[in-house]
Amino acid sequence: MIQRTPYADAFTYAIMVIGFLLLLGPFLVVLAGASQTMPQVNAVPFSFLPQGEFMKNASAAWARADLGTAMTNSLIMAALVTAGKVALSACTAFAIVFFRTPLKHVFFWSVFITLMLPLEVRVVPTYAVAADLFQPIKSILGFFGLEIGIEWNLLNSYAGLTLPLIATATGTFLYRQFFMTLPDELAEAARMDGSGSVRFFFDMLLPLSRTNMLALTTIMFVYGWNQYLWPLLMVTDPSYKTLMMSLLALLPSDNGIPDWNVTLAGSLIIMAPPVIVVAVLQRWFVRGLVSSEK
């Protein structure tokens, strides 16, 4: 379309630049602040120019909040959540889409409902289950007057950190969407070629789902990495601390010295991995977000 609209174009650029400054400004402040000395970071007016102190501030932050352990734990947690989600939801979506059984509707709705209620409103009893995995069974047996003595506590464990986060619907819908777009004949052709359902799943569906898995991986990694409330509740043992839990430990203490440069450097370390993932794999991230919604 040939169009000459200089005013509209100038206005469009103005909007895009303002948007850029508003959304990127905070990053720039953090970058600048994290690389300054304490007097510089507290100067009024604030200087947006980065200085050379970043490594020093970062190592101070690293030591202050024990970021090494937390980094490892965050990585493990994000990886487990991602892997669990990518694997389990593929299986569930397969069961929902490709089988002729009345149960598929039961499966679909029981998974769908979980979209409605986030962890925050059911956090106490979820915590109770994590503290004693057999509590539901015990309660049911207790109702019939029976008692069992087993107990399995998930607090302070990677299983406890990740399993409840895997129990949601996001990935299932992403796969379901994709499976629904595959022509019926694909499975029928495989069937004519002698392949059973399990073989079809591994030979056809999984290889065909590669791009969707990548999309799901990016969003689940960010989701897993950014978990805040759940680790805060689950973890009391410092060796299971995650990075998000270390945030508050980075703050300058109330009556102490305002070394915000160290705090900002620490925050930067904590923010960086998901930002890098989204920056590098942006196409997949966007695709994952858009296609996991209904």
Binding site: E188, A189, M204
Partner: peptide, 10 residues
């Protein structure tokens, strides 16, 4: 063996 209208190639 069957040949489909849309071929259904893998």
């Amino acid at each position: 063996a069957m040949v489909f209208q849309n071929y259904a190639l893998y």
